[in-house]
């Protein structure tokens, strides 16, 4: 590349931003719901934005909210958040080759900012470029944009919640948000099996001490999904 051309980082950033922009609209309702849900859970605006800055993860934040409200033990909150985030281990493994030639600080920042949306939109394009600086720009521009949108619209949601009366049960919006996440997953049959077993077991085992039922239910759900996948493969082979 010639000296007069823009830096590879900026060129990558521009390309990544253009690819991701249409997806970013989907973040807005989520962030608004997140802000309102944290306020309905009893957090102050500072606590709500503090959680948003520290965690930066819609699913993990919405999913742990009912546990925090119920006063669940810390280890259960950790386990649940981890289960909700395990998909990122797979995304992280898939993206890892694109970070060769990138320093550790930028890798940590990139890891912290990893979201479903950026992964879905950019994983493909990331593998195609040879220049490490271009790839970093291509990844970081949409990631930082997502971060900015998320923080801004959560803040708006946090303030919108204050003007809504309590009788509107806004906290139910958090449950709806989790259902909306679950619906596309459940189109795949083994995934539906995992959800039905996980949900059914959590309901039936809700009386277990220390809320252990939720952990047992998640483990049973994973096992059931994996089993269903293997059974499906076997029947296809016949």
């Amino acid at each position: 590349m010639s000296a007069t051309a823009t830096s590879p980082f900026l060129a990558g950033a521009r390309a990544g931003f253009a690819v991701f922009l249409p997806f970013s609209v989907g973040l807005v309702p989520w962030a608004l719901v997140m802000g309102m849900a944290m306020r309905s859970a009893g957090f102050s605006p500072v606590e709500a934005m503090g959680m948003n800055l520290i965690v930066f993860a819609g699913t993990a934040q919405l999913g742990t909210l009912p546990l925090i409200v119920a006063g669940a033990p810390l280890w259960l909150i950790f386990f649940t958040a981890l289960a909700l985030n395990l998909r990122f281990v797979i995304f992280s493994a898939a993206l890892a080759p694109a970070f060769r030639g990138v320093g550790p600080a930028a890798r940590w920042l990139s890891g912290h900012l990893l979201t479903d949306g950026v992964f879905a939109a950019c994983a493909d394009g990331l593998q195609k470029a040879d220049d490490a600086r271009w790839r970093l720009g291509y990844y970081l521009a949409p990631s930082l944009w997502s971060w900015l949108l998320w923080q801004a619209f959560t803040l708006l949601g946090v303030h919108a919640a204050a003007v809504v009366p309590k009788s509107w049960s806004l906290e139910f919006m958090a449950t709806i948000a989790l259902i909306v996440l679950l619906v596309p997953m459940s189109r795949v049959r083994p995934m539906l099996v995992a959800a039905l077993v996980g949900g059914g077991a959590a309901t039936l085992l809700r009386g277990m001490p220390l809320k252990l039922g939720a952990v047992v239910a998640i483990v049973l759900g994973i096992a059931a999904g994996f089993l269903a996948e293997n059974l499906e493969h076997r029947s296809q082979r016949r």
């Binding site: 289960a83 998909r87 995934m191 994973i222």
Partner: peptide, 14 residues
């Protein structure tokens, strides 16, 4: 691991 999010979401929602 792919089944962890679906199982965990359902365990919270149901």
């Amino acid at each position: 691991l792919r089944y962890a999010p679906a199982a965990a979401l359902a365990a919270i929602v149901a």
